[in-house]
């Protein structure tokens, strides 16, 4: 409830600030003044503020307000930055390679930010419903455990039945699935490729198996389903953890190029 109130307040203040900015920009322009210098500095200040969010996360021991409030400010400031950027540049795609590089970086940072925010809204709910919650760092151990259980089931079936049909099939086909996380993209987008693949492969061998091996095949189906759930956790958690590896370096590059842009403006603008 407190967070909602804070966010509402942030949105209203931002809307008022944007309205004031628009009014000032129009008045200055009609008075034949040049608002570019001021909007440029405002944009640069905003970029510095946006980059502070990552620093705030590192300073968790100091009482600098809740990170969720900082995130709200980060999102709103990002939106304002887009408006300011277009106002400042006067176009969506500026002239000159340096300005174009700056614009490209700005758009990439904005897009990765929007995409990341959307993923953060979309994926957590799907993760919750995709099976048992597993800590990301424990996923390799979880998969190794499933693989060991699968190999044990196959070995036991071979010893019990005296046939190696299931064993050979496991080595040729099914071991691929249990080796490491599979069907990353399908899991991220909610597809069912993994289930489909597993069912087809299990059905293919079923009629060739002895009674003991069929029982082991049932166990493999259970383990495969568990592995599918683990893979889904892996895929979605890796996206949630990984998108910042694009956003943050791009933001750092943007800030560097923007600083260079600022220096160039001061050197050549007179």
């Amino acid at each position: 409830m407190r967070a909602t109130r804070t966010n509402t307040l942030i949105v209203w203040i931002t809307a008022a600030a944007l309205a004031a900015l628009g009014y000032w920009h129009e008045v200055t322009r009609r008075g034949l003044g040049d608002p570019t210098f001021v909007t440029g500095y405002m944009l640069f200040t905003l970029m510095v503020f946006l980059s502070l969010y990552n620093g705030r996360k590192k300073l968790s021991m100091i009482s600098l307000g809740r990170v969720s409030t900082w995130l709200s400010l980060h999102v709103v400031a990002g939106f304002v930055a887009v408006v300011l950027f277009v106002t400042h540049a006067g176009t969506l795609w500026p002239q000159g390679w340096a300005d174009r590089a700056l614009a490209l970086l700005f758009y990439l940072v904005t897009l990765s930010g929007v995409a990341g925010y959307a993923l953060q809204l979309w994926l957590p709910g799907r993760l919750t419903r995709s099976g048992p919650e597993i800590i990301y760092e424990r996923i390799p151990a979880e998969i190794a455990g499933l693989r060991d259980a699968a190999e044990q089931a196959v070995t036991d079936a071979a010893a019990q039945s005296g046939f190696d049909t299931l064993g050979r099939y496991y080595v040729q086909t099914l071991s691929w699935y249990f080796a490491r996380p599979r069907y990353w993209l399908s899991h991220v987008f909610g597809g069912r490729y993994a289930e489909f693949w597993l069912q087809r492969r299990l059905a293919t061998i079923r009629r060739h198996l002895s009674e003991a091996e069929r029982s082991a095949l049932g166990r493999l189906a259970e383990l495969g389903a568990a592995k599918t759930a683990v893979d889904a956790q892996h895929a979605m958690q890796s996206v949630l953890k990984g998108w910042t590896l694009i956003h943050v370096p791009l933001a750092a590059a943007l800030l560097t190029v923007a600083t260079w842009h600022l220096i160039l403006v001061h050197v050549y603008a007179r």
């Binding site: 996360k57 968790s60 021991m61 990170v67 953060q120 994926l123 957590p124 709910g125 993760l127 919750t128 919650e133 990301y136 958690q237 949630l240 953890k241």
Partner: peptide, 17 residues
């Protein structure tokens, strides 16, 4: 869990303090 993005910032904050 419908909000948690599994970033482990909570765990890191705990460790840092």
């Amino acid at each position: 869990l419908d909000r948690c993005v599994r970033c482990d910032d909570c765990v890191r904050a705990c460790a840092s303090t």
